[in-house]
Design a protein around this nucleic acid. Sequence first.
DNA 1: TAAAAGATAGTAATTAGTTACTATCTTAAC
DNA 2: GTTAAGATAGTAACTAATTACTATCTTTTA
Lengths: 202, 202
Amino acid sequence: MSTHVKHLPADERRAVTVEAVVELAGSQNPSEITTAAIAKHMNLTQGALFRHFPTKDAIWQAVMEWVAERLLARIDCAAQGIESPLAAMQAIFMSHIEFVAEHPGVPRMMFGELQRAEQTAPKRIVQTLIQRYGERLHRLIEEGKACGELSAALDTEAAATLFIGTIQGLVMQSLLAGNVEHIRHDAPRVFAIYQRGIGSAQ
Amino acid sequence: MSTHVKHLPADERRAVTVEAVVELAGSQNPSEITTAAIAKHMNLTQGALFRHFPTKDAIWQAVMEWVAERLLARIDCAAQGIESPLAAMQAIFMSHIEFVAEHPGVPRMMFGELQRAEQTAPKRIVQTLIQRYGERLHRLIEEGKACGELSAALDTEAAATLFIGTIQGLVMQSLLAGNVEHIRHDAPRVFAIYQRGIGSAQ
DNA sequence: TAAAAGATAGTAATTAGTTACTATCTTAAC
DNA sequence: GTTAAGATAGTAACTAATTACTATCTTTTA
């Protein structure tokens, strides 16, 4: 039927708003997304947004909470039940890439928030997200070194930094090409080099 | 002496403007840099800027030309006279990192321009810059494979993408820590892993 | 169970503040 | 003393946020 829904419950409206922002960030600079643009994208008047969010920054906060929740859930799910630390890292990598391919705006929003000079709520959420992500990587890398899968001489911190960088490099490449689909194709090839860099055997 | 200079020749004023933008980008989101902020940072009135640039986008164009010119010159200079392709790559990497440490706004501006939806002049300059950068990497990687320094089975494109990503990862880390100085310390450690990933021997 | 009353969600218009850009007057330098 | 460079004081368009009012659900009560 799809009755022309206009009145949505507050929590649903907030969810729709977050989705709208994530979608818009996929095709433009996040810091240039206006409340008018958000409202238009979800067929709502601009003022109505402020029935559900006190400020624009509160919208960004909700968006980054959405990102943090989903991304961590994804990578945790991907790694679950995998014995080998290296295989778990690969699974995390691929699920992260899949997430980015589905939502190309995500890395842009995260980078944008980190760039902010002031310490805002959404920025803090991103910092916490990456910190938690790093903890998981550290744990896996140490496990990998312990079980002999990874080089015993490996610099754990550097390896975690490069893991994130590997993804950032792919994002950069997709921005250059103007094509997000390629990222799925390139990801395994780039990870192969990373794996060789951290692995114990040639 | 440093006499209180107010009236500058047009070309000098343009150069000072570019420097002001580069500096500002080191401490805030590039897309939030206003013409008023640029003018204030160089002790000038906002309107006076438009004596030297027809539009704000023309300022960005000049800035990205400055970046492209300096960065390419730096890495070319760094690689000059180095026989070994792998050593040349390392020299390029370190000089790029040094450039970023001196001008933390540079990677932010480049990422910001690439994010633009429309095809603007400054965006095109960045695309050309990265393309040329990629060409140099491709050449070195192929040379490295030919002379046996790099793994013969290496995926050249993936290796170039990861090279850029390695730098991006370090930039991300410096944004997180809010400290650009660490990047000089972390860079060799991260490059060591990259080198192991592309090298021929263990 | 039907109507009244209240709560919730949305509209349209308006606000103060900001932005890039411009017109006009003033000053400094060769 | 002419002219390039800067100051001053605008403009129109846009931005986040607010307001008075309206539509639509939900609950209470006779």
